[in-house]
Computed example of a mutant assay.
Amino acid sequence: MSNIVKFFVAANEGAVDALAGGPNSSFRALSFGNFDAEEALLDWEAHLTGVSFESLVDRDFPEIIAEGDEGASVFLLSDALVNSLAVASDSEVRELALWWVGEKSVDGFEIELPVASVILQSLVDLTREELQPGTHVYCWTS
């Protein structure tokens, strides 16, 4: 479980530099906490793209850009996930949030629907508003 989860948009160099303490103030970062970010990225991609969770794991998704000795990591969100989020309608975001809450509940992890909705809608907004040529969406965890 990640204590702090931050999503941000950057060029690859900026993503690697974020490992030490998270994205700096020059990045618009979304901050959340207390969920397994790596597993969430797998869950969301599997649900949105129809590729199985296990298949994504076998293909080493999400890609780890940097890992620190203290437990911090930076993950690259795949183009498939980012593109799916960027074109998701409000109803698709709500449906994903409902599905994610149910999926985590089965695993014994309770996440409230309003929290799941805010996380996902904020990430959708970030992909639509901040993504520029030469940049990618990343997730920093600690």
Rank of each mutant, 00 (worst) to 15 (best):
S89T: 15
G71T: 10
A20P: 02
L131M: 12
G14D: 04
A72W: 12
V51R: 09
S73K: 15
E13T: 07
N34Q: 06
S26P: 02
S105E: 14
F53A: 05
E38Q: 04
S25F: 01
E67F: 09
L98W: 02
L120A: 05
R59K: 15
N3H: 10
G50W: 00
D125R: 12
L48P: 02
T135D: 11
L48T: 13
H136P: 09
Q121L: 09
D58L: 13
S105Q: 06
L126C: 11
M1H: 01
E63H: 12
A29F: 08
E95V: 13
D17W: 00
G102K: 04
E92D: 14
V106I: 14
N24M: 03
S52W: 08
D107R: 13
D107N: 09
I65P: 09
R128P: 07
H136V: 11
N83A: 13
W99M: 03
V57Q: 10
A40M: 05
T135P: 08
L98A: 12
F35E: 00
Y138K: 11
G68T: 08
V137K: 09
S122M: 04
V16M: 05
S31T: 15
L81S: 01
W140D: 07
D107P: 00
E39T: 05
W100Q: 03
D43K: 01
P133M: 11
D125L: 10
S25Q: 02
V5F: 08
A15Y: 07
V106A: 13
G68Y: 05
G22T: 01
G102V: 10
L85S: 07
N24P: 03
G134V: 13
S117N: 10
F8D: 13
L77T: 06
E13C: 03
A46Q: 01
V124M: 11
P62E: 05
V16F: 00
A11C: 10
V74I: 14
L76Y: 09
V5H: 04
E95C: 09
D107I: 07
I64W: 06
S142R: 03
V57N: 01
Q121Y: 06
G33W: 00
A88Q: 07
H136S: 14
F7A: 06
C139F: 04
S142D: 15
E38L: 01
